[in-house]
């Protein structure tokens, strides 16, 4: 394994050297569009990413790849080949705190998290007393935010928290083993299509708006710092593509849904429904900093390790020229 790593590191070194060389060539011949790859999880941001990648532009041509596990994400960031990644904000901040050169360009995923119940007896948070709520990922934002909101209502102690991955939660809900869960969109719309009785007990975004007067930031577009410094025009162009893609989706989601339904593995109708419930907004990191820091401070208080022990500094937020 260690030998394999050293072989890998050699390969990476050579790739970095050759990469530098090709970058130099590219800056000479400016007319040709820069090829960039965006690595995205199978989360709501995938929809706008797929559409953005089809928009023609002289500056950049976009290619999309997806990641499933944190390890894949880290490997790609470390490798440096792919300039743009979409990731949950807390993971981006954590990676930044660990010394990985990531900068937040845009916040592009907001809210989209719900505490739902399939039980007809549950209408509001208080009804969950003594019940078990299934939560994806111990220590992740769904867990920390749920704990935060339950504590606000002072029923944190009375609600049992059970942790499992999203696919298992879906199965447990389907089998009747579980009846309450915290789920993100668009997965939730998939469940909604299959269940006769589904109550939204908590809309995290709505609660957030009430409490802090803004939407709940969740995930964003990150760029490799050095690459961004060399290609500011490309970062600008990618940002513009996203803005345009979101504007188009707000008018008509059909095209974007068609492009991404297969990657999600869900029917287009279900994804279309989910899109109606996703607050779409692309906000530059520097503008969203207040919301992001508000969000981070809640996570920081609940579990410092979740964002790397401190609020990220100035350098975390990419500054457009």
């Amino acid at each position: 394994m260690t030998i394999w790593r050293s072989v890998c590191s050699l390969v990476v070194c050579m790739a970095v050297i050759s990469g530098c060389a090709s970058n130099a060539e590219q800056s000479v011949q400016q007319e040709e569009a820069i090829k960039v790859t965006v690595l995205t999880p199978k989360s709501p941001a995938l929809v706008s990413t797929m559409l953005a990648s089809t928009l023609n532009d002289e500056v950049v041509s976009m290619e999309v790849k997806t990641w499933d596990t944190i390890e894949q994400l880290l490997a790609v960031v470390q490798d440096g080949e792919i300039p743009f990644v979409i990731a949950p904000l807390n993971i981006g901040a954590n990676a930044y705190a660990q010394g990985l050169p990531l900068q937040l360009v845009d916040v592009n995923t907001w809210g989209a998290m719900y505490l739902i119940s399939l039980s007809p007896d549950v209408d509001e948070l208080a009804d969950l007393e003594g019940e078990a709520v299934y939560i994806p990922g111990r220590g992740g934002p769904p867990d920390l935010l749920t704990d935060y909101l339950l504590s606000k209502d002072q029923i944190s102690e009375e609600v049992e928290r059970v942790y499992a991955a999203v696919p298992e939660i879906m199965q447990l809900l389907a089998s009747g083993e579980a009846s309450h869960a915290v789920l993100p969109e668009p997965v939730l719309s998939g469940l909604r299509a299959q269940s006769d009785h589904l109550t939204e007990v908590l809309d995290y975004d709505a609660v957030w708006q009430q409490m802090f007067g803004g939407s709940l930031p969740q995930a964003g577009l990150f760029v490799q710092r050095e690459w961004a410094a060399q290609h500011p025009e490309a970062v600008q162009a990618v940002h513009a593509k996203y803005t345009e893609a979101v504007a188009r989706i707000e008018q008509d989601a059909a095209e974007a849904v068609q492009l991404s339904a297969e990657l999600f593995g869900m029917p287009e109708e279900v994804l279309t429904q989910a899109m109606q419930r996703l607050p779409l907004q692309v906000m530059q990191a520097s503008e969203a900093r207040a919301e992001v820091e508000q969000y981070f401070s809640i996570l920081l208080e609940a579990s410092p390790d979740s964002i790397g022990g401190q609020l990220p500094d100035e350098g975390f937020y990419y500054q457009f020229e």
Binding site: T2, S6, S9, L74, Q78, Q98, G99
Partner: peptide, 13 residues
């Protein structure tokens, strides 16, 4: 070997 290779990588990797 582990120690030498680790020099080339950030601790998170």
């Amino acid at each position: 070997v582990w120690g030498i290779v680790a020099i080339a990588y950030p601790a998170v990797v």
